[in-house]
Design a protein around this nucleic acid. Structure first.
Lengths: 249, 249
DNA sequence: TCAATATCTGCACATATACGCACAAAAACA
DNA sequence: TGTTTTTGTGCGTATATGTGCAGATATTGA
């Protein structure tokens, strides 16, 4: 019997009875209780169930927004997220757009930070619910299934009514002359609005995306105040941006 | 019997009767009174109940999050959610507020439904991303950590700009004379706005909550078009609503 | 006040769990 | 193909947890 298969059966049992005993599972599935316990631990860590002494129960808190760590370029993104997180301090007001790196940024934040965050990402907003001192304001609008974030005029409207200290934007294409571009028209609009609504723009950019050009213009290169990449700030590849007075992290 | 399981049963007993005696619990659950006392102590420390000499009472100022958090009444909620889901048809425009039963409603929806949904619940919006044909519009605003849904003026503003065919509202307190009330002022506001923004109001109400009165008024009883409970529609307990012309499901 | 109950404390016992280890099966790699 | 690495499993042991019991103490209500 495959591990996954077993865990599936366990989940079904829990859904049906709301609880399971390790001992009965061990009997039914013909594996040691140790194995069952390991399965339960797995499932609990993934948030599917709640482990208790003697077995497990259905998870009372629902599907938490979780980050699947099978993201491409995970290492690079982690580096960027950490650098970005270290720039955030108590009492700042920031905007986080709905891209992956920002999600990882939130994961790297210390839990005792006192912040005001504007975001259009369902997952970021969900994650931030675990931060006692963070005031989250969600930018409403039409929800895009792919990104689990809101889009459209309503988001732009809401953004026009706010002002933040910093915005953190994942940039898919950063070119020294043509500036920031994006492959999605709506996304480009949103990013542009976010930039306009904040004093300082922190661009999060994978080094592979430097030099890219995409169809929709977001903004000029000098709109970026700081550029965070997975490279060392002194890396020669970044020279072309250093010369433009952009603060490299 | 698992400890957690026992404690759930105790919680449900308390929610139903508002009080319990250690001695009767010991009898029902077949454990020593010592164990019951330890359970009650646990639950009291977590803030779910108030321990008193001889047993325990419901905690009068139990934060709303704790109630949701606790899967009690899961069976009842499932019944309600299923009935509600069966009322939803292709091409409808509906509003779902952020309460637990609505989340379960979404879980019971067939995946091929073609809908427009307005919601202020992060979890509902997230779930709906799995529905190819559902257009979700999220009502932005300040995010409440406990409920993972947005609150405040912005939500009310957004609601004033929309109109839906149906709204599904979880009702915590439904009284034949005093109508719908709620224990939370903001929540009451939101519910009132949702009602105003839709042609028909479908009230989802646990049978235990019928007859309750809470401090903040949401609306009159005749604002409700359909009432879905965990009871049979012909149950005599519902007569007082039948007489008012409310459609019982 | 007294008697009846409820509660607390320390203890013993059974059971569940974590940890390190060994070993087999599967997967990755040269 | 054969070899190395990873993953999954079971076992023994030390530890932690949950439970019931006895005796001391506190609370309740007449």
């Amino acid at each position: 019997m495959l591990k996954e298969e077993r865990q599936h059966i366990i989940l079904e049992k829990i859904q049906a009875n709301n609880k399971v005993h390790s001992s009965t599972l061990s009997e039914i599935l013909n594996v040691s209780e140790d194995t069952i316990r390991r399965d339960l631990k797995d499932l609990a860590e993934q948030g599917y169930i709640k482990k208790v002494h003697g077995g497990a129960m259905a998870n009372p808190n629902l599907p938490k927004a979780k980050i699947d760590h099978n993201i491409s370029k995970q290492t690079e993104r982690t580096i960027i997220a950490r650098k970005a997180a270290s720039m955030i301090e108590d009492h700042q007001v920031i905007v986080l757009d709905g891209d992956l790196t920002n999600l990882m940024l939130v994961e790297s934040l210390p839990k005792d930070l006192n912040l005001t965050v504007f975001t259009n990402s369902l997952r970021i907003a969900s994650l931030l619910c675990e931060y006692e001192l963070v005031e989250t304001i969600f930018l409403g609008g039409r929800v895009s299934r792919q990104t689990q974030s809101t889009m459209g005029m309503e988001v732009i409207n809401s953004l026009s009514d706010i002002h933040a200290d910093f915005s953190f934007l994942e940039i898919n294409s950063l070119h020294e002359e043509l500036g920031i571009t994006d492959g999605d028209r709506e996304n480009a609009f949103i990013k542009k609005s976010i930039i306009k609504s904040s004093s300082q723009v922190i661009a999060l950019c994978l080094s592979d995306d430097i030099g890219n050009i995409q169809p929709f213009k977001v903004g000029q290169i000098n709109w970026v105040h700081s550029l965070i990449t997975d490279l060392d700030p002194d890396d020669p590849k970044l020279n072309r941006f250093r010369n433009k007075g952009i603060d490299l992290k």
